[in-house]
């Protein structure tokens, strides 16, 4: 083969010469496409996980702050009785939620930094394992073969197949956190936390000091 443009023609020729029932001829470029496809699915899973985590975090903050407001109705009543405005109390509750979220973000970032590589490896491995298994099954039925000139031209079971290239390509992937990603993630979670804390903060405005203090 003297040109990359001849890959398909060469593939067909090798296939015809050796017999398509005995060998499976695959171009190396398809291995790369398989690897990229695996990475794309990992990226999709990560994005869905991130969005789900954001929504869950917002809901958790919302529920926790509603419970906090209910538990601290008396304190809210007392604060109002001694001159605190609805705004002052509402802002205090939002700030409390944000402090909790910032602490959670710092801890979460640390855990993510430690766990991201093993998780990425596990995700990549599970994606490539399934494609490699499919390839091997096909190869086993077609007998022996060999790799030549960047093209898969059949292979024995256990020697790897056309997807072994993909496994090797994406086996070297490692994760790292850029400052931009970190800043965007932190901003996102703070916004979600602020939204989650807003409803309970508004609930504090409905607390009437007399209702709380009447229970004395």
């Amino acid at each position: 083969m003297d040109s990359i443009d001849n890959v398909d023609a060469t593939s067909t020729a090798v296939d015809n010469a050796l017999g398509s029932d005995r060998v499976d001829v695959t171009a190396g470029s398809r291995n790369l496409a398989s690897a990229v496809s695996s990475l794309a699915s990992v990226q999709k899973i990560s994005l869905i996980g991130f969005l789900a985590a954001l929504v869950t975090a917002g809901l958790i903050v919302l529920l926790i702050m509603i419970l906090v407001v209910r538990e601290r109705r008396r304190e809210i009543g007392v604060l109002k009785a001694i001159g605190a405005s609805n705004r002052t109390i509402g802002v205090q509750f939002v700030l409390e939620a944000l402090v909790l979220v910032v602490l959670g973000t710092v801890v979460g970032t640390g855990v993510a930094a430690l766990a991201s590589n093993p998780i990425a490896t596990a995700l990549v491995s599970s994606n490539t394992t399934s494609t490699t298994a499919t390839g091997r099954a096909g190869a086993a039925a077609q007998g022996a073969g060999q790799l030549a000139g960047g093209r898969g031209a059949g292979f024995a079971p256990g020697q790897g197949g056309p997807f072994a290239g993909a496994s090797q390509l994406i086996g070297t992937i490692s994760t790292s956190v850029g400052w931009q990603t970190l800043a965007m993630g932190a901003l996102g979670i703070l916004l979600i936390a602020a939204l989650g804390a807003l409803v309970p903060a508004l609930l504090t405005a409905k607390v009437r000091p007399i209702e709380v203090l009447r229970g004395e």
Partner: peptide, 15 residues
């Protein structure tokens, strides 16, 4: 409530 009056409660109601 903030400027003109002060409350003293039976249950103290401190934070």
């Amino acid at each position: 409530r903030r400027n003109d009056i002060g409350f003293v409660f039976q249950q103290y109601n401190l934070i």
